[in-house]
Structure formats: structure tokens, C-alpha cells
Design a binder for these strands. Structure first.
Lengths: 162, 162
DNA sequence: ATAGATGCAAATATTTTGCCGCCAG
DNA sequence: CTGGCGGCAAAATATTTGCATCTAT
């Protein structure tokens, strides 16, 4: 019943990296979605990102592979991936401005726990969270497609400094 | 252990209306925060709002009391209230664009359950959610100040139409 | 061949900042 | 009185749209 303690990670760093790189590309092919050069670049980056990506970071990395790749393409590709439920959109409690962060959807939902002091973000899986979702699904008679829990607080370090 | 079923509510409509109007104003006075004419207007609106407010709605309503009240004042007042933990910021899964919604913080956190089809939002309290927070607090050694859970899916009506 | 994607420019939406005059306490 | 606050304008940031062109299939 204890939450998988997950790992301590520095600002935005992630661990749930694709066990199977190319998963996004394979998934889109399976669904008959057109794969352009630009999309392949973006999918690869998202698939293997070691941190939570925002549009700016995604664009910057994509331009290393293709300097002409446009910011609009990033937005449109993210929209498409959101529509297909392949990536989740987070705001991480606006730790750093009002931008959004994106991560590939994994096999199991997780909670984001952020320190509002230092910005560290941990990803935590929890049986309790799974049960909560099932309870909501039953009690509200809703078919859940996205469940987002973001928790903010202060870690021991930041507590002692205040 | 069942979630408090809460009530079915139309787009953004809320029920957790202040049991004690003027609570926000009293709270700020208690903390020695200066109360201006503009702040009183905004606090009263937030205190008694029957729906989730975004900046646009808040401004529009405030201007009925004072047409010169500026949008920037709305942003600054909301910032202040957020800092003091008196209001929570939501995005309701971006049901309607990338704006934020604000609600007075009540005595007990609740979950927002939104239908991605028709936009209805329900507020649900749950013992499981409270336990989840305590678990996170313990396992992650964090002192939680904000916990946000937003769940999206499709209600029976919207399921049948697709 | 052609439906659908991209690039570019511009529009729109959202939030923040600088500065000066005003007002609550 | 005076430090904090509000109004106004402008800037900064974030996202979306229109349209001509290109390309994956």
C-alpha cells in the first residue's frame, strides 16, 4: 500500500523513460497517422526525454536535427499527441511561469510531487491513487481518460531555510 | 469510504459557496493586509461565486461595481490571495482554452471531475484522497501546501453520443 | 494524385512590468 | 504621512489561425 517511493530527481528530471524507444512512432503508424520528417524528430525526443519538456525545450532540441522546424509544428504535433492520448499535459503547479510541460503517457498514471521552494519534482505511483480513480469512475459514472494529480509543498531542505 | 457524491452541476457551476460571506475579507483583516475598495469588490465576488471564475469573468463582474477597476488589479489580487493560500488556481484540464479558474479554498480539499464532452464539472470530496495526501506527505517527506486533482472523462450522455 | 502537414506571418490570448499618482491605515 | 496599492500603457510570454506550398502515402 505504500507509494512507490520513486526517486529523488532534480528540477524536472524524469525517470519513466520509454522502455521501448520508438513506441510513439510505432503507435502512430499502427493508427495510420502520417509520419513526417518533423514528427519523427519530435517523437524521438519525447520518447527519450530525461526531463519534463515544455514547448521551448522541445523546439530547441528539435532544431538541432532540423533548424527550420517551426514552433507551430511543435504545438500542432503536441495537440495531435494529446488528442490520441499519447502524451499528458502538465503545468507542474506553475513552478516556472505559466508554461505547460509534456510527457509520454506510460502504462500507469503517476502523481507529480513538486517542492515549491527548490522546484524538484518527483513522480510517484500509488495503489491508493489507482483506487481513488476507480472510486471516482464508479461514483461519478464517468469513463476516465485523463487523471492528473499535482501536489506542491516544501521539502525538508527548503523548510529549514525558511 | 465512498466519495461524497457531490452534486451534478452545469458547466463550472459550484456548490461549495462560502458558508460565511465576508470570510476572505475577515481573513485579510486578521492578517493586517490593507483592504482597498477594489479588493473588497473582488473578495465579495470570489466569496460568493456560484461558478468557477476566470480572470475575464471576475473582471466583468467587478466592473459592474466599479467600471474603472483594472484587469491588472485582478491579477495582482489573485496573486496575493494565492500567496496567502486563500484561493486555489485550477485549469480544469483546459476545457475551455488555456485560462485558469479560481476558487476560494475551503476547509477540505476536493477533486474536480470534468466531462470532456459537455464540460460539466463536479466537485468530489473523498476520504481516499485525504489518505493519499497523507501517504505522499509521509513517503516523500514533504509538507503539502497545495494538492490538485483534476480528472477528465466522458459522462453517460456524452458516451452514448459518440 | 491528393489529403493532410509544414513554414511563415500575423493575430489573439494571457500574464507581467514600469511608473506615477492616490489612498488606507 | 507614507508605504503599499491601483490605473494605464507597454512589454513579455504563450498559443492559435490563415494561407500558400510541399510531401507521405
Amino acid at each position: 500500500m505504500a507509494a512507490t517511493p520513486a526517486r529523488r530527481i532534480s528540477s524536472g528530471e524524469r525517470i519513466n523513460i520509454s522502455a521501448e524507444p520508438g513506441r510513439l512512432e510505432a503507435e502512430l503508424t499502427r493508427r495510420g497517422i502520417r509520419l513526417t520528417r518533423q514528427r519523427r524528430i519530435l517523437l524521438r525526443i519525447i520518447d527519450t526525454a530525461p526531463e519534463h519538456l515544455n514547448v521551448e525545450l522541445l523546439l530547441r532540441q528539435a532544431r538541432r536535427a532540423d533548424p527550420r522546424l517551426n514552433r507551430v509544428t511543435v504545438y500542432r504535433t503536441l495537440d495531435m499527441l494529446k488528442r490520441f492520448g499519447l502524451v499528458d499535459e502538465l503545468d507542474l503547479l506553475h513552478l516556472r511561469g505559466h508554461q505547460h510541460y509534456y510527457e509520454m503517457r506510460g502504462p500507469r498514471d503517476h502523481i507529480h510531487v513538486a517542492c515549491l521552494g527548490c522546484g524538484k519534482v518527483r513522480e510517484v505511483e500509488s495503489e491508493l491513487f489507482d483506487r481513488l480513480k476507480r472510486q471516482i469512475e464508479r461514483d461519478c459514472d464517468i469513463q476516465i481518460t485523463v487523471a492528473r494529480t499535482e501536489i506542491g509543498g516544501y521539502c525538508p531542505n527548503c523548510r529549514s531555510r525558511s
